[in-house]
Each structure stands twice: as C-alpha cells, then as structure tokens.
C-alpha cells in the first residue's frame, strides 16, 4: 500500500522514500558522540529533544557507500525508535496519489519500487530496517577480544 505522503531523499547517490508519517524531523547534521561495540555504520549518539538517539549512516548500512559526513539527518518517529538516519539530502515531499507505478521491492528492506514525478524511488520498510539493525547489534556485541 502506497503511503499518503512520501519523503524522497538520497543516500549513497541513490533515491529512496520513507512514509512521511514514520519521520519525525529532518535535521541539519549535529555533533554525535561515539560509543563502543557497535558496527561501523553507527556514527554515534545524538540528543534529539532529550532522547538519546542512535545515528546510522544509511548508505553504509545498505552497503552502498563509505562513511562520509551526512548532509541531513532523518529522525524516525520516536514512538517507533530512537534512530536518526544520516543521508545525502532530502529532495521533496510528494503525495502518494502522484505515484504512477509500483513494483515489488526486490531487495531486503525495500518495500516497493515507486515511479514518481521525481523518478524511480525505493520505499524503505522501517520495521524491517529496525529489525535488521537490531540483529546486527546482537551479532556484534562488545565482547573481550582473545
């Protein structure tokens, strides 16, 4: 099902979309503080209105790009998670009604490929993204090295 409104953004040079309802705020980059034991796509922690929020480089997590300074931070709805995604930039917000075509997403975390006036975008499935990130943390907990 196509969301009512979509936030179109780019990460590692590719176009993605999120259901606008799942995004709480688009922020300028801000200082983040490193923490130990997490995989490298975790850039650190930021303070989002008092919530300690993990900052993840989305392009890097998707295996599409190196660790670079993000252009924008997409903070997910705090009811869903305490997570901000570092992306290259945000291009627009479009109505779901303007989507002219829909095909199933053939990659993990991608719910669908959508044809919009801005071109083809891949709709991210937030729950799958969160589950994947959690799985990654469980696989690489900080443990004493031999």
């Amino acid at each position: 099902m196509i969301p009512e409104r979509l936030l179109i953004f780019s990460a590692a040079g590719e176009e993605f979309a999120l259901n606008l309802q799942e995004v709480c705020e688009v922020m300028e980059p801000q200082p983040s503080y490193p923490f130990a034991g997490a995989p490298p796509h975790y850039l650190g922690l930021i303070n989002f209105h008092g919530n300690l929020t993990a900052l993840v480089d989305l392009g890097m997590y998707l295996g599409k790009g190196g660790r670079g300074a993000p252009g924008k931070l997409l903070v997910l709805d705090t009811k869903l998670a305490h997570l901000a995604l570092g992306v290259d930039g945000v291009s627009s917000i479009v109505s779901g009604e303007t989507v002219t075509g829909e095909a199933p997403g053939e990659e993990p975390l991608i719910e669908a490929r959508l044809e919009t006036a801005a071109g083809t975008v891949r709709l991210l499935e937030v729950e799958a993204l969160l589950r994947g990130l959690e799985e990654g943390l469980r696989e690489a907990p900080p443990r004493p090295q031999p």
Partner: peptide, 26 residues
Amino acid sequence: KPFGRPLSRMAGLAGGATLGDGEIVT
C-alpha cells in the same frame, strides 16, 4: 535514560546520559 530501538537490544549498555557540556556517554 534507557535507549529505544535499536540500541535497546545491544548487550553491555545500560542506557545513556548527557554530561554537563552536552556530551553523551553510555
């Protein structure tokens, strides 16, 4: 402060806190 998803699933962390200079520590 407790962490929300996804860090709430991370072993070895009992939450986080902000120091007087705004820095976040786990």
